[in-house]
Design a protein around this nucleic acid. Structure first.
Lengths: 351, 351
DNA sequence: CAAATTATAGTAAACGTTTTCTATATTTCT
DNA sequence: AGAAATATAGAAAACGTTTACTATAATTTG
């Protein structure tokens, strides 16, 4: 590999000058010299040895990205958002998945610090990092899509309240009054937020929630199926069901159809998360899409900001999602014919 | 950060000795000394400075992973397989997505070499790397899920022929003789392989392919829909349709049902790739699953092997997939009731 | 016009490792 | 027992940068 020394020799200058040019230092270098050095560097294909630079500056242009669950439907998109920003700023990411607590987060952080990462991004993490900040060796961090209950000023999370309000208000706007709710896994703090928003929105609309309209589910399809069956057995049958995510919504859809009822004519259904299942269900399911790519971008930008300016006030950042109106809610936009809806699909090409 | 010097001082030995212990050198160090050093290192939380080590050894414990399309349904799983192996061997990965040729592959490779990566893994790449091997600076590389036509000895790819034979033979075993085929996007070399395997298998079974039974599609749902319509208009109607991927299969499913025919009673359908859509379609679609995680693991192991032993004979490595029998083919195993099938689902939990 | 200032460049010391070479005990061999 | 071999440890040079310090030429100032 070609080094700074060779560039200096060929350009007829000292290595200090070359260094100043190559590292974009604000130390003054005459335009001609700079130009000449850049030309030589280009010609002989010089690129700085990061290890040497990192050794000297204690910065690495590496950002540690720690995931609790790479297999989730969200993680890859968030990561792409993160990388989109970081690569453009000359950073690489060290992405590590920490499944089943196989490695402890502390060990991974330690390893990454060994590589002198300049900062950390935690994605969908269950582990509060604030109190462990010392283990980060004073490196800045950001959390995207936080899964633990406590608040953290360096978090980028979906605006659950606004998003949940969106779906409930949509049903209200369509004239529904008897709206049931299938909640998500209690262990996730987003479950409570979504449920509470439903309750708040109903209260704000002056509607009383009927007996048996709220069922505690988990996140998966079977749970949605069973929950919907219970709801349909309520004294007063609802005309719409809000599910805390698309898996539950799809399960509910099957249950409703199993009972011989039509969706959306007899029972409207809305989900949350814009899972692929909602695009392919029959009927297609109205849902809320989370701006995951954007969240990743914002996280990366926040981190870059912290890296540049030392101190600033930070606060939890809420990113709003978007209502995707499809067929299951009975709104006119949702009544697209199958073929038309599919034509819009961006299903990934096969190998 | 604590350095080797401090460890040496506290342990009362030279830095050379500490280095030999910490880097697992095979240079002899007495057991007592080794033990003492490890104890001190543990106590004061020493971990080697990778930049310094890397500067000296010209190795970084970093592997560059270059993707053409992170958004594909396969990439994240392959990456997890890669990381599963590499992390256990003390490597981190520099994962970079190269979308829309925004960055050229050569530039990314160059940047990664700046970070002294020890090797490269190309995932789902369209770019032949063999002839550009010099740009890799003699670093070893492996390709997973290669998308270009030419063969490359350092490739880990699905055994398309065996997989495709699997589905066709399955239909033959079920008694089908009139089997039509919807091909995938011609630009992918796997398309030709899958189609040819279908032709070979039919020929081997002594069955003539009817007029209009083969339609050139692309990969998406609408294309499957249109292709199936064409097939159903053939003089001699087939009793089964093989689609080159699940998107096409799903489109075909809709088309068949649109014509008032039943799947699988009137027309059996099988797909390929085990896309999520096939688990949620009605009926669920029989397909072939690719061992993506395994492919990632094998790729990583191959690379590690190259890193250890300098030279060896390599050859393209084919990894077989598995037939997933569901409802759309009419086989008994596929006749599971909805609820039972969903219960098996591992749909990811929501946040 | 001399002095002070500025612009630009070079020198050399770090950064924290690994590793070659050298040194000293300790063991083994004849 | 003396020589040779071995086991173990330390000294010091290198790896390729950045940067504080020093040096010189060019410019500005009074």
């Amino acid at each position: 590999m070609v080094t700074i020394k060779e560039v200096a020799q060929i350009a007829g200058v000292s290595i200090a000058t070359v260094s100043r040019v190559m590292s974009n230092s604000d130390y003054p270098v005459s335009p001609q010299t700079r130009e000449a050095i850049l030309q030589v560097a280009e010609d002989i294909g010089y690129s700085p040895n990061r290890a040497a630079r990192s050794l000297r500056t204690e910065r690495s242009s590496l950002i540690g990205v720690i995931l609790d669950n790479f297999s989730s439907q969200w993680a890859p998109i968030i990561i792409r958002g993160i990388q989109d920003i970081l690569h453009n700023s000359g950073y690489f990411t060290l992405v590590v998945n920490i499944p089943w607590e196989k490695y402890s987060q502390a060990d991974v952080v330690q390893d990454m610090l060994g590589h002198s990462v300049d900062g950390f991004i935690f994605v969908e993490t269950w582990h509060p990092v604030r109190e462990r900040r010392d283990m980060l060796n004073n490196r800045p961090y950001v959390i995207v899509h936080r899964l633990f209950h406590e608040s953290d000023p360096y978090s980028i999370i979906p605006d659950e309240r606004q998003n949940s309000a969106l779906v409930v208000q949509h049903l209200l706007a369509l004239g529904h009054r008897k709206i049931a709710y299938i909640a998500g896994d209690e262990r996730y703090f987003s479950s409570a937020q979504r449920l509470n928003t439903y309750l708040d929105t109903m209260r704000a609309a002056g509607i009383e929630v009927g007996d048996g309209w709220i069922v505690q589910g988990e996140w998966q399809v079977p749970s949605g199926y069973q929950s919907a069956k219970r709801i349909l057995a309520a004294v007063q049958k609802p005309s719409a069901i809000v599910a805390a995510n698309d898996g539950l919504a799809y399960g509910a859809l099957l249950a409703v159809q199993d009972e011989g009822l039509r969706v959306p004519e007899d029972v409207a259904i809305v989900g949350y998360d814009d899972h692929e299942i909602s695009r392919f269900a029959n009927p297609t399911i109205t849902t809320v899409t989370l701006p995951l790519f954007l969240m990743g971008q914002v996280a990366a930008e926040n981190l870059l900001c912290q890296l540049q300016t030392s101190e600033r006030e930070y606060a939890e950042q809420l990113i709003p999602g978007e209502l995707i109106v499809r067929q299951s809610c009975g709104a006119p936009e949702g009544r697209a014919v199958y073929a038309r809806d599919y034509a819009r699909d961006k299903m990934d090409a096969s190998s």
